[in-house]
Amino acid sequence: MALEINGKVIETDEEGYIQNLNDWSPEVAEKMAGEDGCELSDNHWEVINFLRNYYQEYQIAPAVRVLTKAIGKKLGPEKGNSKYLYELFPYGPAKQACKYAGLPKPTGCV
């Protein structure tokens, strides 16, 4: 599979995760979200940027439990809970948000 952004073709795996993490740009996230019928708000971006920073630092895509806890620590309890994150990312906060953020699928996520 592939995404086309500004004439450039970006390879994705069969579930839509990009293959080469360096191919990511905000347009990649917009395009993926668009295909899921989702428009990215500032709240979405906050989580996506959080994930990109997390990956930069630890080289892993966090499990949803860890993501929720870490978001709570950084952005406060009103955001660090499953309800808030599932509302933003109904396909699963770790999975859907990681995909938009250009990360690999979280370890342990089937």
Binding site: A63, V64, R65, P90, G92, P93, A94, K95, C109, V110
Partner: peptide, 10 residues
Amino acid sequence: MADETMEEGG
């Protein structure tokens, strides 16, 4: 979403 229940473990 079913997958992610698995991911949450517990």
